[in-house]
Simulated scan of single mutants.
Amino acid sequence: MKNVLNLNNYTELKEEKSLMKYLKVLNFHDLMVEAEEALKELNNGKLNKEVSLRSKTIIKEFTNRLKGDSDVFSNGLTVINENLEKNFGKIKDIL
């Protein structure tokens, strides 16, 4: 059995972990600002791995924060996050 991890996957996981640490320390307002900036980048710019990863990670952080407060919102974001994960895998292959 091999424990081999693709270097690109390792780098992506490391970036996501670092971004999650950053997002966790933000208050809700600052997290909303980050989300708005990511949305602007998605709407105005060319899609790339960094913007995709940032957007995916922001949605994960919202989902984690809302789990304790509201199952309705949390469940909705979980579905969005699952769809995003599937599409992110497809986008990674293109980029």
Score class of each variant (00 low, 15 high):
M1I: 01
M1W: 03
N3R: 05
L5P: 00
N6V: 01
N8Y: 10
T11E: 11
E12K: 07
L13Y: 08
E15F: 13
E16Y: 01
K17L: 14
L19Y: 11
L19N: 11
M20D: 06
L23T: 05
K24T: 11
L26C: 04
N27V: 02
N27A: 02
F28E: 13
L31E: 07
M32H: 09
V33K: 15
E34C: 08
E36N: 15
E36G: 14
E37R: 04
A38F: 09
L39C: 02
K40E: 12
E41R: 09
L42Q: 02
N44K: 13
G45R: 02
L47Q: 01
V51P: 01
S52C: 15
R54A: 13
S55R: 08
K56L: 12
T57I: 01
I58F: 01
I58D: 02
T63W: 05
N64E: 11
R65E: 03
R65L: 03
K67S: 03
V72D: 06
V72C: 07
L77E: 05
L84P: 03
K86W: 02
N87P: 01
F88G: 01
F88I: 04
F88R: 05
K90H: 00
K92I: 03
D93T: 14
I94V: 08
L95C: 09
L95E: 05
